[in-house]
């Protein structure tokens, strides 16, 4: 019965996420639910990015492309073809995965900053492309028919349901992250992160392994995209492919600690919490972005391993819990 200890690392992340999911239920407050939704969404996206960034060591600046692409495709089927939100999310996730597979075959050959640049280029190209596709509404995007919500008992119920789906997606994202982290596949990723050439010499089939990591990191963002646009009631190119949000995801992963399951959760919470506080605070409101920038800079310069990485270094005994 040594096996359960391997999954101890999942315990803390799960507790945190379940806590966030129950928080609005307890308060019964819509605005709490909105905040919790934002945080859960950030956790799901950051954890997915972490599979590529933290485990594999590839810096994807344009990871939001999967959120936008999957979201667009899924919403199209929900809105124009009357598919259910479930089927829409499924098709959104799958199309994001397929996109990642095709892109991965091409751009994962690039290393370091060249890969990062390519991901930026792809996101911008995709944004511009959707701007031109009449099928998806061009620059105006798509507005959800109000009747779509009826199938779920009206708008209020549909939005409530969206929150629980979001919580479910976040939990799935964490389970994927944990299973990857503790698997042989994940060990191969870590080896690639540390030294890709040495990993290949030891037999890690890096090109395939990286591609699958890319696919895994793309599916959940695709599904989250569908859900978010469904909840929002519309989608437009610049809302679907915001480069700035993509970089914020990197910041979250870095803040919490890349390469750990718990890190992106703490990072997402800390970042969103901080933004929320600064935006509403009288004192910081006007220069909230600068304050965030200063904090980020201090962390990059002085605690590059992130919060969880730092704790792991300071307290090696905590390693099993802080995965």
């Amino acid at each position: 019965m040594k096996n359960w200890r391997n999954h101890l690392g999942l315990l803390l992340p799960m507790l945190v996420v379940i806590g966030f999911s129950l928080w609005p239920v307890i308060t019964g407050n819509i605005s709490t639910r909105e905040s919790a939704f934002t945080i859960l969404k950030a956790i799901a996206l950051a954890s997915s990015l972490n599979i590529l960034l933290g485990y594999t060591g590839y810096v994807s600046f344009g990871h939001i492309v999967f959120y936008g692409f999957g979201g667009y495709i899924g919403l199209y089927f929900v809105n124009q073809q009357d598919w259910s939100i479930w089927a829409g999310m499924l098709v959104g996730g799958i199309s994001a995965g397929i996109l990642a597979f095709l892109l991965g075959k091409a751009i994962l050959r690039l290393r370091g900053a060249y890969f990062a640049l390519a991901t930026i280029g792809i996101n911008e190209a995709m944004k511009a492309l959707f701007n031109n596709l009449d099928l998806f509404g061009g620059p105006i995007g798509m507005v959800l028919n109000f009747s779509v919500y009826k199938a779920y008992g009206g708008a209020a119920k549909a939005l409530g349901m969206a929150f629980y789906i979001m919580a479910g997606l976040t939990i799935i994202a964490l389970i994927i992250s944990h299973l990857v982290r503790t698997s042989k596949f994940g060990l191969g990723l870590l080896a690639i992160r540390e030294d890709e050439d040495a990993a290949e010499v030891m037999g890690v089939v890096a090109p395939d392994t990286k591609t699958w990591a890319y696919v895994l990191s793309a599916i959940i963002p695709g599904m989250v995209g569908v859900l978010f646009f469904f909840k929002n009631g519309n989608v437009e190119p610049h809302v679907a492919f915001p480069l700035h949000s993509s970089i914020e995801l990197l910041v979250m992963v870095m803040l919490g600690g890349q390469g750990t399951v718990l890190g992106p959760i703490l990072g997402a919470f800390a970042y969103q919490g901080m933004r929320g506080y600064f935006v509403t605070s009288e004192f910081f409101k006007d220069i909230q972005l600068s304050v965030s920038g200063v904090l980020l800079l201090l962390i990059v310069l002085f605690i590059p391993a992130g919060a969880v990485g730092w704790l792991r270094q300071k307290f090696p005994t905590l390693r099993r819990v802080l995965q």
Partner: peptide, 30 residues
Amino acid sequence: AKLGLARTHQIVKPLNELTVIENVVVGACF
């Protein structure tokens, strides 16, 4: 590697952020 060739490097290439045993497990797994 899969065929049964293994090597060491003149300039060592440890997987720095992994533990010693994890390094060796990589060799065994792949």
